[in-house]
Design a binder for these strands. Sequence first.
DNA 1: CGACGGCGCATTGTATGCAATTCGCGCCAG
DNA 2: CTGGCGCGAATTGCATACAATGCGCCGTCG
Lengths: 237, 237
Amino acid sequence: MKRRITPRRSGSVTAEPRRPAAAIGKTTRAEQLRRQLADEILRRGLPPGASLDETEIATRFNVSRTPVREALRQLAASGLVESRPHRGAVVAQPSFERLTGMFEAMAELEAMCAGFAAERMSPLERRDLEAIHEELRMLSHDGNPERFHDVNERFHNAIYAGSHNDYIADLALATRVRVQPFRRAQFRNLGRLATSHAEHDRVVVAIMRGDRAGAALAMRRHIELVRNEYEIYAVSI
Amino acid sequence: MKRRITPRRSGSVTAEPRRPAAAIGKTTRAEQLRRQLADEILRRGLPPGASLDETEIATRFNVSRTPVREALRQLAASGLVESRPHRGAVVAQPSFERLTGMFEAMAELEAMCAGFAAERMSPLERRDLEAIHEELRMLSHDGNPERFHDVNERFHNAIYAGSHNDYIADLALATRVRVQPFRRAQFRNLGRLATSHAEHDRVVVAIMRGDRAGAALAMRRHIELVRNEYEIYAVSI
DNA sequence: CGACGGCGCATTGTATGCAATTCGCGCCAG
DNA sequence: CTGGCGCGAATTGCATACAATGCGCCGTCG
């Protein structure tokens, strides 16, 4: 298979000086590829099980196989991709049991963060959390699922940060990312938006009270409800 | 710097046919390197902060830079190594705050595993756990720190497995590995061995009773005591 | 005497060619 | 007709050459 269209190396007096826009990627090609591929996986442009041919990807992005390989290896290490020696890489497709385990882990990790946040959040952080929560309340009325989803992520991220434990926050975020391809778009209907907000409310109230156990419990229940939604989805595949 | 001593590629009628012993590594070179480097880091042959020069490592292991780079990237993804673009890689040297966070996370993750194990372990798994526990009891009397350390790892691994949640088990194990370079050899004195066994005993009793909260609590306390030992060590650096 | 800028060196990032392994496919034997 | 075996094509793994970036050193200027 031909490797590329424009020979970019020597000469190359094309309109494309060397890199299309030097400002686009301020890091290495491998890093850009990693982000791009991760993004496509999370947006389900690359569904679970899709094969990731090194040469094909290299051609598609107009780079050599080397940075593609690095990107794939890093994605494999982060769990979004599964790779077996000499047999190529595919978008990760965990078994049902493992996916269930990941949701359970997410529930526990988020509960852990919420519990720590209840004890450790600064007054400023608490105000910020309440602000995000209020924003979600309004969005749940307006019924803008797209924006709700974004602000919902900010809500959970604020709680991760409030745990004042970056390592646990990293674990929680990584787990959230890994299950992302398997969560269906949940915020289609206003009902789910309102329900989600009500669940959040219990979490926020507990955090504001400094009630560690209550915050953890409320968050665990919230995530477990999310998981239930997922199971319906999984069955309907 | 010269890349290698024997040009291995063409000709190479040396005593070393191609790979020293084909049976040694049944996987790729990058994977072998990853294991070898991880092992050296965990055994503190490569202490935190040590720089990992690609060319130097390639020369040392008599391979090209390509698999070295892959190994380093994977180690970076697993957290044992920190790497910045164009600036090389070093053995990870987390800040004191982050290390504290990692210990806290380990306590919570192990407690989580112990709690699930109390509810989910099969009768066979329980018997195996008790057997390991008994082995540790004898070793704590004999006072063989080396073997005690190995069996201690088997003890904790048995509890990870007993959680019946591979994902959480992976997180717990990964965290344990990442703090490994910062734990001092704790089992020098018999006192610590006996204390550790006593703490384990509470965990085992709770698990046998199916007491989830009790098992989690006992394990959390056990790990926190380990952490205290660490803090003394950290200060004494 | 100190600070700033340019230049050379060392090191990492990328491209490309070759080697090795895997898997499909056809062929032959039972 | 079926099952096993060997061969070839395709794909990944590794080596090497080249490019680009960051860093330190030195000289010059304020």
